[in-house]
Simulated assay, not measured.
Amino acid sequence: MSNKKQKMDPRVMRTRQLLRDALVELIDERGYEKITVQDITERATLNRATFYLHYSDKLDLLYQSTKEILNDLLNNLNVTFEDKVEFDFSKDADEPHDTFMHLFEQISLNSKLYKVFLTEKDIPYFFSGLKKIIIDFISNGINFTQPDDKKLTVPRELAVRYFAAAFLEVIVWWLENDMPYSPKFMATQLMRITVKGPYLEHPFGK
């Protein structure tokens, strides 16, 4: 994907961006089923012939936009947990690891698209695609911090799914509330609650 982007004509990139932005705005206003290619081209101030140079129909535009955004997120989660071996999760939970930062920064760059695509009922595969990325993200983190299954309190796959569901719900909440906190704040809080839990002191006794 990154090589493709480097070789793509800037005018083509701009055209595709205009069409994607128009799609997101119109889905937000009317819902996917109620919009047409004509609506999209008018909003993007392009003609239909230009649209069909890039996409076969509105579903193709939706699918390609979904794939591009999820690939961008995946490519930007490029600092693995192993790349920062000096990071001590037991001591540094108040300073987010780079991977947590990259997650929220990338989502914030395309916040309207994420918000619309995650809440639009006709785009379930966007949620599924993001869920898979988050599951892999969580799995890599747990595998790095504790590779020994015997030292986990629950089965590894259960823990991965639990945290992935929580991450997704937090991301949706953040977007639906128009990102009241910065990406760094969100990354810090999510990492803190993942590593330390929500309590300053154990509420059920020592």
Rank of each mutant, 00 (worst) to 15 (best):
V37S: 09
T15W: 05
I123K: 05
R48F: 07
I193S: 10
Q146M: 05
L152Q: 03
F100A: 05
F204H: 11
Q64G: 04
F87D: 03
L61N: 02
N75P: 04
F167Y: 15
L200K: 15
I134S: 01
R30M: 10
D88S: 09
D9I: 07
L130P: 06
P10K: 13
D92K: 09
L53D: 00
H97L: 03
S139G: 05
F144Y: 13
W173T: 14
Y199Q: 00
D122A: 09
E68M: 10
R11L: 13
F167M: 06
R30C: 11
R20N: 06
E68L: 12
K5A: 07
Y199D: 06
V79Q: 12
Q17P: 11
V24P: 06
S56W: 05
I133P: 03
N71G: 10
V170L: 10
L73I: 03
A166Y: 14
S139V: 00
A93P: 01
T66A: 08
R43M: 09
K112S: 10
L23Q: 04
L70I: 09
D149P: 12
K184V: 06
L59E: 01
L109S: 11
T66C: 09
D94C: 03
N75V: 14
D28K: 15
D83V: 00
M179G: 06
A159W: 04
Q106H: 08
I69T: 14
